[in-house]
Amino acid sequence: MARDLLKDFHQTAISAEGPPMTEVILRRFLQAILVVFAMSLFVFVGIYGIGNPVDLLVPEDMGPAARAEIISHLGLDRPLYIQYLTFLGNVLQGDFGNSFVYNTPALQLIMSRLPATLELAVAAMIISTIFAVPLGLWAGLRPKSISGRSIMVGSILGFSLPTFWVGLILILVFSIWLGWLPSSGRATGTVFGIETSFGSWQGIQHLLLPAFNLALFKLALIIRLVRAGVIEAMQMDYVRYAFAKGVSDRRVMLVHVLKNIMIPVVTVIGLELGTVIAFAVVTETIFAWPGTGKLIIDSIYQLDRPVIVAYLMIIVALFVFINFTVDMIYLILDPRARARMVGTA
């Protein structure tokens, strides 16, 4: 039996060798590019191919001659694939067209709103990590206790709470009943020449409610992740030996347990940043936070196609970039991942 185990071990060791690193990186990179192109095609056909943009762009009382002129000027009389190629060429130069509503370049519009969204997302991530790690640790150390079980049931509630409804309740309690915090908008102050909410007390006050709202969903996720990690780590030999050796509880927790489970936790936090940015759509709408999420909802209402397309493309690119980066970090940290990634490719 021992020999079988050894054979198994050797086999995994061999398969872990995998192809050279550069090849793996290149393959993943090409894949990422392919995904972005596929999504651009999907978004373009979806937004421009279905429905008629002419109805939107041309005033109804315009004569047929003027109408035809505008159509040919916009290139809408050409076949769809040529329109797509033109669109693609423009996008590669950073040109998504002008917003119908604001009449400024769509990309510029989104970029001007992006800092507010990123600020909100980062604040939410910080809040959820600060609360979730100690709670998850506690629940993991005492999984059978009443407090441990309550934390778990609480985290299920956290999963179940609809983000938008929590936002309303936060406004109701903290703005209307208690009057402690403002219910909408953003205030900024300048720190080191950067305009940010962290720059003034007023800015932080405005940031608190939306950031907490956005944090809640991820809070539940990280609690469960930390708890599962702690339960697993507590059964590991290195933790038992550390206890047997007489290392203090505190040191075992911080150095042996927490440090090891932080790897998956940090990975998830990184991956979830994209989700948080996407979910900011809801929070920004409720708290009238002037970020990209509110912009996209307004644009959908107003059928502002260039802005919709630009937003979707930027978010997709962001996602592909985050996934790619996480994969690459894994690749460097864990050689076994190399074989796995190629294995499924």
């Binding site: 994209g274 989700t275 996407a278 979910f279 759509v281 809801v282 996209i296 959908i300 978010i315 997709v316 996602f319 592909v320 996934n323």
Partner: peptide
């Protein structure tokens, strides 16, 4: 790889 809210939106 895309969050559900984004796909739905």
């Amino acid at each position: 790889s895309m969050p559900s809210i984004l796909v739905a939106l």
